[in-house]
Write a protein that binds this DNA or RNA. Sequence first.
DNA 1: TTGTAAGCGTTATCAA
DNA 2: TTGATAACGCTTACAA
Lengths: 339, 339
Amino acid sequence: MATIKDIAKSAGVSVTTVSRALNGYSDVNDKTRKLIEDTAKQLNYSPNTLARSLVMNKSQTIGLLVSELNRSGAKDMFTYEVMCGINDSASDVGYDLILFSTNSVMQKQKSYTQLCRERQVEGVIMQGIKMDDPYIKEVIDSNIPCVFVDVEVEGKDVGYVTTDNVFGAQMAVKHLINLGHTEIAMVNGHDQAHVSAKRRKGYERELTDAGLPVRDTYILNGEFLEPMAEAAAFPFLQAHPEVTAVFCASDLMALGVMRAAKRLGLRIPEDLSIVGFDDIVLSEYTSPPLTTVGQDKYQMGYEAAKLLTSILKNDDPNQKMCVLDNRLIVRETTAPPRK
Amino acid sequence: MATIKDIAKSAGVSVTTVSRALNGYSDVNDKTRKLIEDTAKQLNYSPNTLARSLVMNKSQTIGLLVSELNRSGAKDMFTYEVMCGINDSASDVGYDLILFSTNSVMQKQKSYTQLCRERQVEGVIMQGIKMDDPYIKEVIDSNIPCVFVDVEVEGKDVGYVTTDNVFGAQMAVKHLINLGHTEIAMVNGHDQAHVSAKRRKGYERELTDAGLPVRDTYILNGEFLEPMAEAAAFPFLQAHPEVTAVFCASDLMALGVMRAAKRLGLRIPEDLSIVGFDDIVLSEYTSPPLTTVGQDKYQMGYEAAKLLTSILKNDDPNQKMCVLDNRLIVRETTAPPRK
DNA sequence: TTGTAAGCGTTATCAA
DNA sequence: TTGATAACGCTTACAA
């Protein structure tokens, strides 16, 4: 592998000149530059970013920390789509992405800060992380710039990207109320997710605004998992025939509720209306197709990387968060209640 | 950020000793080691892998080159699941992953070799790349170890992981023949995919083995895309009512054919049997659920990274490829033909 | 068992 | 406009 030394020797100039010529500095003679560029090409030179990063103390790398990057994520594609957005945005501004995957085992061995500093990443994007994850505290304490996806944490050089979860939930519930439903249950995700609290808040607020009672017994825990949602919904729906609609905090859980309803012989949407959240790819393909609150996952990723790079450049010190819109997508799992 | 120099100074020893102590060399006094480890902890030291890589000329990094890492991949989840496998396998052996995403624009600016050398990756895994992609030739020419997913290329330090596509296709077609079908069409992917040729070969071989004719007009091109498959299948099925079964080279294309069939008023599987390939998440959720040839995508990724690291360690110079099994998953899109 | 010194491939400071 | 030289944080002969 050719280095600038080789070029310098071959071109008969000093390494300093080579470095400056190749980096486009103005204080180098056109003829010299031409000569250097030619020999560089001839020697098939590529710069060594490791060495450059070392001396400049800038790695042009963003760490991507995905908690439990694993197959279970395959179903909702959330992680993947966000990642695509991050990737596009990062490469737009010349950053490379390094993938840290962590699980609780590794986490015990290596702290967040260690992970980042070892690889000298300039900043990190964290995704799929639970509110009680020890990494979060570390991030606040460390001074490594970081952007969270769907966790509302703020601090010096720490920001987040999310969608308006309260509003999204309100839209979903309002849609059901407008159809005439009054007995509306909710299947929520686990408490360790920021979005759970938000979506519940939207659910409760909308009920209250419509003058409907909020009943704790109507709120089930589906852990964001399809089978857990099914397991929770089955006995509930059996015990509560008065319930005509269910709002689910994720599409995956909505699938579980659909399964439970089918096992109980309930027709969707005639006997039971269901609304999900996320608009995962699957939701278009279920039968019937799922009404849901759509989030632009790609854009979330794109904005996350954009926010991080702007923090890195210290563009706008006040811009520490990004709340995107979401929208109601009415498909075929919702209809007026049967009376 | 503390460096070994800081530790050396603070502990009153030389940097050499610090380096050796921290790296577990045996030729260092237990007491000294203890002292060094303590001060390292106290100073909250993390090693700088950049510096280490530079001097050792080993980056402990694998490049992940995904052609067009984008939203269109969201539907089949193929890329994502393979990535999960790669990630797990790589972290098992202490490698980090750096994500190169390329599109044809960037590719013009930067060659494969440049990309790799700049970031000093030790090896690369290439995924989603077409047979006519210029990067492939570059790989062969460069001497950077590389493993392809689903492209059968071999060379010095170059290998691949795939599943037995010919056999998979044969299973699919045999299943249809066993059900009693004789007029079996195929919707294939584009010619730039290695797997297209293989799956076609399996299709033709199985027909021939069963004494059935192979008709070129029965082989359509769906470009691996759902809408293209639908567009190709619609007029074909209309013009060929004698066809009672279709084998598709991907599940996504099978979805397209199902759409076309529905538009033509054909019932699945009564009027038309359909078999896909891949076993994507969606295939379980279509109505009816899709019969398909399942590939373990996670395992493909896992084996790819394992193969690459074994090439890097020069474990077994003859082990340059890995062909995994696939299996027929019979769901509800296949049935005996109506007579 | 420990330390000195050179070197990895860059960039940056300063003087020429 | 150019070139010595030091520095980035680390590993590794080699010497002590």
